[in-house]
Each structure stands twice: as structure tokens, then as C-alpha cells.
Computed example of a mutant assay.
Amino acid sequence: MDKHNLTLLNEFILMGITDRPELQVPLFGLFLIIYMISVVGNLGIIILTKMDSRLQTPMYFFLRHLAITDLGYSTTVGPKMLANFVVDENTISYYFCATQLAFFIMFIASEFFILSAMSYDRYVAICNPLRYTVIMSQRTCWVLVTISYLYSTFVSLLVTIKIFNLSFCGESVIRHFYCDCLPLLSLLCSDTHEIKLVIVILSVLDLISSLLTVLVSYTLIIVSIIKLSSAEGRHKAFSTCGSHLTVVVVFYGTLIFMYVQPKSSHSFDTDKVASVFYTLVTPMLNPLIYSLRNRDIKYALHRALGPLCNIFSQC
């Protein structure tokens, strides 16, 4: 498509999750429930960790920002996906597609480094407990989060601008339920060697650097825990890391399954299944994991809901 024809492209067609009519209503109900649980859970984590005085620690500071990123990328994708179940033609405008891609990349990239910061926080808490308050000061926490957001915004704008400055062919059907890099690259007529190289380098850099931080932190944590003589101390140390480690395994496991599979087994249908998991299911699971496994979150929730429950019981 030449530049003159490119100006005529003002929307894309999203294929969605399925083209089977009998599955539209059940899937809409299922994903609506999942998305609502995700929104309520992550908003609850954000409010609790902000308002409760006992949750003003680095661990819950990072947990709040993890909830913000979870809420961010699930909301970037979820409402549009749900709307596509109830309309006849799943279209998305050219500029809204670019906006969706930009915000999705920004929140996903932020989550990489927030999970890394959380693993470093747990390492300092267990391996250097006497220096914890000095090392993980409020300033340090804000620096880590700010760098994460600034870097992810840079990556997001770089990739989005490069993709949408290239020429799209006459085919405007995106084989996905949201605007993602891989389906969009398949629609480009221009030379995609440069943008593919940029995406590969940034993806590998982000994945390896963040995953390496997590692995090194937890290796040192496990070594430190093994050296503890008290069984109770080992159990307490493991319990402080259990929720975060579960979230890490679910998040990285899904992404590695999606992006590090061989080309022979790669398909857009497989990508859609994996994408549903990490764009909707993972943001729903994260607050549930922390709420069910974390005693401080449970107590904070009881303190927040206690007055409300008393009002209803009096009524």
C-alpha cells in the first residue's frame, strides 16, 4: 500500500477470541466476571495499601504498584474485548489501536521491573534484615518505581511509533482480540526487519534482566533460609516470599510459553489463549493470591470492612 492509500486506512477489524456464535454469550459472561474480580481485587489492594497505616512498608508499596500495572493492562484490553462480544463487527479505529498498543506495552514492561523490585525487597528483608529500613528507604522505593515507569513509557512509545509509521497492506484484519505487536507486524507491507530487531532486543533485554534479578534474589534467599537453624524461622521466611513467588511463576511462565516457543508450534490461536491468561486471568489471580496468603492484607481488609459490617448488622 502506498502512502496515498495509507491515509484511507482508519480502522482495523479484530477477529476476537472465537468466531463461533454459540460461544459468544458464555464467554462474555465468563470474561466479564473475571474482569470485574480483577478490577475489584486490584482496586482493593491499591486502596488498602494506601489507607491502612500498618501497610506503609516497601513490600506493600511495591504491591500497590503491581496492582496498578495489573489494573492498567487488563483495563487496556478487557473492556474492548467484552464490547466485541456484543457487536456485529469487531472494529477498532487506527488511533485507538495505536493507543491500546502503547498502554499495553507500557503496563506490561512496568510489571517486569516491579516484580524484580519486589524480589529485591524480599532479598534485603531476609538476607539483610538489620539494614532493611536503610537500604529500602522511601526514596529508594520511589526511584525504582519511577525508573520502571519512565523506561516502560520510552519502550512503549518507541515500538508504537515505529510500527504505526510503517505502511499497512490492504488487509486490515488483526488475528487477535486486541492490538498486539505480532499480529500488527503481519499486516505491514514495509520492511519490518528493523522493528522486529528492536522488539526482539527490547523483549530479550527486559525478560532476561528482570528474570535474572528474580532468580538471583531467590537463590540468595533460599541459601539464607537453609542456613537458618530454626524450623519456625525457615517457615516464616518462606511464607513472606510465597505469594510473590507464586505471582512470578504464573506471570513469567505464561510469557515464556507464548514468546519462547519454536516457530513450528507457533500459532495465533495459541497466542490468543496465552494472551487471555496473562491479560485477564493473571491480574485477577494476583490480588487473590496476596489476599489469601497474606495475613496483613486479611487484617487490613477486616479493619476496613468491620465498620461497614456493623452498620449492616444494626440495620
Score class of each variant (00 low, 15 high):
residue 204 V to F: 06
residue 204 V to G: 00
residue 204 V to C: 04
residue 206 D to I: 03
residue 207 L to Y: 03
residue 207 L to M: 12
residue 207 L to D: 01
residue 207 L to R: 00
residue 207 L to W: 00
residue 207 L to V: 02
residue 208 I to G: 00
residue 209 S to Q: 05
residue 209 S to F: 06
residue 210 S to W: 00
residue 210 S to G: 04
residue 211 L to P: 05
residue 211 L to K: 02
residue 212 L to I: 04
residue 212 L to Y: 13
residue 214 V to A: 01
residue 215 L to F: 09
residue 215 L to P: 03
residue 217 S to M: 03
residue 217 S to E: 04
residue 217 S to K: 03
residue 217 S to R: 02
residue 218 Y to G: 05
residue 218 Y to Q: 01
residue 219 T to F: 15
residue 220 L to K: 14
residue 220 L to S: 01
residue 220 L to F: 14
residue 220 L to I: 00
residue 221 I to V: 13
residue 221 I to M: 07
residue 221 I to W: 10
residue 222 I to G: 04
residue 222 I to R: 11
residue 223 V to W: 10
residue 223 V to F: 15
residue 223 V to L: 13
residue 223 V to E: 09
residue 224 S to R: 15
residue 225 I to Q: 05
residue 226 I to F: 12
residue 227 K to C: 06
residue 227 K to N: 08
residue 227 K to L: 08
residue 228 L to I: 11
residue 228 L to T: 03
residue 229 S to I: 03
residue 229 S to W: 05
residue 230 S to I: 07
residue 230 S to Q: 10
residue 231 A to N: 09
residue 231 A to Q: 11
residue 231 A to S: 12
residue 232 E to L: 10
residue 232 E to H: 08
residue 233 G to V: 00
residue 233 G to C: 03
residue 233 G to F: 04
residue 234 R to S: 04
residue 235 H to I: 14
residue 236 K to P: 02
residue 236 K to I: 11
residue 236 K to V: 13
residue 237 A to T: 03
residue 238 F to P: 00
residue 238 F to C: 05
residue 239 S to F: 08
residue 239 S to M: 11
residue 239 S to D: 09
residue 239 S to I: 04
residue 239 S to L: 10
residue 240 T to Y: 06
residue 240 T to I: 08
residue 240 T to S: 15
residue 241 C to T: 14
residue 242 G to K: 11
residue 243 S to R: 08
residue 244 H to S: 15
residue 244 H to T: 14
residue 245 L to D: 00
residue 245 L to F: 15
residue 246 T to Q: 02
residue 246 T to R: 06
residue 246 T to P: 01
residue 247 V to A: 14
residue 247 V to R: 00
residue 248 V to H: 00
residue 248 V to M: 01
residue 249 V to H: 00
residue 249 V to M: 09
residue 249 V to K: 03
residue 249 V to L: 14
residue 249 V to S: 04
residue 250 V to M: 11
residue 254 T to N: 15
residue 254 T to D: 13
residue 256 I to A: 08
residue 256 I to T: 10
residue 256 I to S: 09
residue 256 I to G: 12
residue 257 F to Y: 13
residue 258 M to V: 08
residue 258 M to S: 14
residue 258 M to N: 12
residue 259 Y to M: 07
residue 259 Y to P: 00
residue 259 Y to E: 07
residue 259 Y to H: 11
residue 260 V to T: 09
residue 260 V to Q: 06
residue 260 V to F: 15
residue 262 P to G: 03
residue 262 P to H: 07
residue 262 P to Y: 07
residue 263 K to G: 07
residue 263 K to Q: 09
residue 263 K to R: 12
residue 263 K to D: 10
residue 264 S to T: 10
residue 266 H to G: 02
residue 266 H to L: 13
residue 266 H to M: 15
residue 268 F to M: 15
residue 268 F to C: 07
residue 268 F to N: 13
residue 269 D to T: 11
residue 269 D to H: 10
residue 270 T to V: 13
residue 270 T to C: 10
residue 271 D to V: 02
residue 271 D to S: 10
residue 272 K to F: 04
residue 272 K to H: 01
residue 273 V to L: 13
residue 273 V to Q: 02
residue 274 A to V: 10
residue 274 A to T: 09
residue 274 A to P: 08
residue 275 S to R: 02
residue 276 V to H: 01
residue 278 Y to C: 08
residue 278 Y to Q: 07
